[in-house]
Design a protein around this nucleic acid. Structure first.
Ligand code: FES
Ligand code: FES
Lengths: 162, 162
DNA sequence: TTAAATGATACTATAATGGTATCAATTAGG
DNA sequence: CCTAATTGATACCATTATAGTATCATTTAA
C-alpha cells in the first residue's frame, strides 16, 4: 500500500549521492554511471528535482547539478513532493473537496489529520539522515505485525502485492 | 504523492459507516444505497475487508457484515493494509531487498525507518476517531507549506497532480 | 424450493507509470 | 566562430495497475 513511485526512490538515491559528494558538480551522465540508472531517466528526474528547487543547475558544457541547500535542511517529504506532487493520500483531499461522495463522507475532514501526520513523519527525515548507513536504532525491520500480511488478500485477480 | 487507491478511501468510508451503525448487520445492497457507491464495487471491497478479518460475514438470506472488533481497536493502517496489501513505500523494501540497485543504494536501510514512521502515524488513527466529525484540532487544512505546491512540477507530460 | 445474500473468478476499459526519443537553448573551450 | 557538452522542454509509446463490471457457485432463512 501507499506505493510511492519507483522514480521517487531513484530521486532520493540521486539526492543522497549528490549530498555525499557535495563538493563537485554532477552531470546527468556522471550520475547515471555512478548510480547505475538509465541516463534518460536520470535526466528526467534531475530536471524535476531542479525545477522543484532542490537542485541548482548550470547549463552548457561543464554544466551540471549541485544541491541547492544543506542536506540537513532537505527533507524526504520535500523530495517526494517535488517528484510526485503534493502529498494527498486520497483523491478527495487534494482539490478542496470536489468529491461527489463528500456529502455522505463523514470521514473527509479527518483525512487532513492523517495526511498531516504522514507528512510530518516524512518531513522529519532529512537528507542528512539518509547518509548515515544505519541510524542509531538498528534496523526495526518488521514495521507491521506479521499477522497483517498473513491475512492480507488482494483486490485484483491474479494477485501479487509482495 | 503517496497516492492511496480510491477503493481504499471507499473502504474506510464503508468501515466508518458500519461502525456508526454497529447494532445492525449490513448487506452490500444496503450499504451501496447508504453510501452511494456502485454495488459491485461495494461487494468487492466488503469481501476483501472480510477476508482481511476486519469484518465478519454471514452468508445466506438475511446475511451481511458486521464489525469484527471494537472501532477503538481498528486502525486506519489495518484497513489500508487489508485493501492494498502491506505498507511499503518503495518497491525495494517490500520483498526483502531483491532490488538490483540495492548494492549502490545507501538509502535502502533507512527506508525501513521511514516506513515505520508512516505506519505508526496511520496506526494511531483508529476507526473510532474517524467518527467524531472533527477532532479537537479544528481543521489543520494546509498540511504542507504553500511554497511546496508552488514549486511542484510534474514528471508527466500533460500534467495534473491536483 | 425459492430468494437473498456472500464467495470466487474472470474480464475489460481506462488511467498512471516508467521509459525513450527528439529538438531547442545555453555555455565552455579550442 | 564553431563545436561539443550539457540542461530544458515536449512528445510519445509500452507496460502495468486500477477501477469497475459480469458471471457463476455457495450458503441459508423463510
Ligand atoms: S469519499 Fe470523498 S471525501 Fe471521502
Ligand atoms: S533503489 Fe532499491 S533499495 Fe533503493
Amino acid at each position: 500500500m501507499l506505493r510511492m513511485g519507483k522514480l521517487t526512490d531513484y530521486g532520493i538515491v540521486l539526492m543522497s549521492y549528490i549530498a555525499e559528494h557535495r563538493s563537485k558538480q554532477h552531470s546527468a551522465h556522471m550520475l547515471s554511471d555512478a548510480v547505475h540508472m538509465p541516463l534518460p531517466t536520470v535526466r528526467k528526474i534531475l530536471k524535476v528535482l531542479s525545477a522543484g528547487g532542490l537542485l541548482t543547475s548550470e547549463r552548457g558544457a561543464q554544466g551540471g547539478y549541485i544541491l541547492s541547500g544543506d542536506p540537513a535542511d532537505i527533507s524526504v517529504a520535500q523530495i517526494i513532493t517535488a517528484i510526485e506532487g503534493p502529498i494527498a493520500l486520497t483523491e478527495c483531499v487534494s482539490s478542496a473537496s470536489q468529491c461527489d461522495q463528500e456529502t455522505h463522507c463523514a470521514v473527509q475532514t479527518n483525512w487532513n489529520q492523517i495526511n498531516n501526520a504522514v507528512f510530518h513523519a516524512l518531513d522529519e527525515v532529512k537528507l542528512a539522515d539518509m547518509l548515515t548507513p544505519t541510524l542509531s536504532a538498528a534496523r526495526p525491520v518488521q514495521f507491521y505485525p506479521p499477522s497483517y500480511r498473513a491475512k492480507a488478500v488482494s483486490l485484483q485477480d491474479g494477485d501479487q502485492h509482495e
